[in-house]
Computed example of a mutant assay.
Amino acid sequence: MDQLPQFGTAIFQALMPTMKAYNSVHENNRSSIESTPREEFTYGSDPCQKLDFYSPKSISEDTPIVVFAYGGGLSRGDKRLPSPPTAEGLVYANIGHYFASRGFITVIPDYRRTGEGGTYPSGGQDIAGALEWIKNRFDTGSHKLWIMGNSAGAVHSATWLLEPSLAESRKSVQTGSIIIQGVVLVSIPAHFQKAGADRRDVLTAYYKDRLEEDCALGQVSKAQSPEAKLLVVTATLDPEDEILEPSQHFVDAYKEKFGKDSLSEVVLEGHNHFSTVLGLGTGDEREESLGREVLQWMGQA
């Protein structure tokens, strides 16, 4: 979208203008997005533990599965964002539609945020809970599984992949009917060394006094050999201090520990922190560059 550069790169500065810019794009595609069947299910006892399940045209014993974790700064977000500023019910249904229309079962879970019982490692635990629900639903067959997270959702996806206490969840998708193939981290704030003062309360609420140890970069040092391929995605209009620099630190530390071939990297030209996922399901090839890169990597991983 040509006007993205004028919104700036700072996360809170770019948020509302970007959401509003995609409102009409999503509205124009409402009938297409809503044509993808969606069901809501509960995957845990907490009120936040619900998920949206998007179905492709047909489901067989080997239909692949994508689990998407949205962002929201650890304190906000919803599996279908309300209006305003977004088109009612279409974000993140656009992602469910995008992958389902390409043959993937797509699962988008809500998770506990700060103020709702969300404290580290609850984000990774809730991804584990959603995976357990998926395993119970598909207890036969051989379904390839991919996890993709954006921003705070990437933080939670990294927690699921690296946190030692979640080893049993990772082990549970190494064999059986659901087999993990890879994890995609989109615009991950891998540490918060340059986070503004306005972020302090939320970070303290989520990480308590272990921010440095339990942020994604800190998790690398305590992780064992990763049990899934990893793709790290950034956008050229991501903020340098909050995303690009921390993400690069994460990549460097990960490669140093697990080898230079342990992860892949992609930079999306012309996208900002939000447009990478908002552009999916629009039917525009340039807007959907994240999906194209992820699908290509899936075929290689």
Rank of each mutant, 00 (worst) to 15 (best):
L145I: 05
L145C: 05
L145G: 05
L145F: 04
L145D: 02
L145H: 06
L145T: 09
W146P: 02
W146Q: 02
W146R: 00
W146F: 14
W146G: 00
W146D: 03
W146H: 10
W146C: 00
I147C: 03
I147A: 03
I147W: 05
I147L: 14
M148P: 07
M148T: 11
M148Y: 01
M148E: 01
G149P: 01
G149R: 02
G149A: 06
G149V: 02
G149W: 08
G149T: 07
N150T: 04
N150I: 00
S151M: 00
S151H: 01
S151E: 03
S151K: 00
A152T: 03
A152K: 02
A152N: 02
G153K: 01
G153T: 01
G153Y: 02
A154Y: 05
V155G: 08
V155P: 07
V155F: 09
V155R: 02
H156M: 12
H156T: 06
H156K: 08
H156P: 07
S157L: 10
S157I: 10
S157Y: 06
A158F: 04
A158H: 08
A158C: 13
A158D: 11
A158G: 12
A158T: 12
A158Y: 03
T159L: 14
T159A: 14
T159E: 15
T159P: 08
W160Y: 15
W160A: 07
W160E: 08
W160I: 05
W160P: 07
W160Q: 11
L161N: 05
L161Q: 10
L161C: 12
L161V: 10
L161T: 07
L161Y: 12
L161W: 13
L162A: 10
L162F: 06
E163W: 07
E163D: 15
E163M: 05
P164Y: 02
P164F: 05
P164I: 07
S165Y: 12
S165C: 13
S165R: 14
S165M: 14
L166C: 08
L166F: 10
L166I: 12
A167E: 15
A167L: 13
A167Y: 11
A167N: 14
A167I: 14
E168Y: 13
E168M: 11
E168P: 13
E168D: 15
E168T: 15
E168K: 15
S169W: 09
S169T: 03
S169G: 13
S169D: 04
R170Y: 11
R170I: 04
R170K: 10
R170E: 05
R170C: 08
K171Y: 13
K171W: 09
K171T: 13
K171G: 08
K171M: 09
S172K: 07
S172I: 01
S172T: 06
S172D: 09
S172N: 13
V173M: 02
V173L: 06
V173G: 06
V173P: 06
V173D: 02
V173I: 14
V173K: 03
Q174P: 09
Q174Y: 10
T175G: 12
T175R: 13
T175D: 14
G176M: 10
G176Y: 11
G176D: 12
G176I: 12
G176K: 05
G176L: 10
G176V: 09
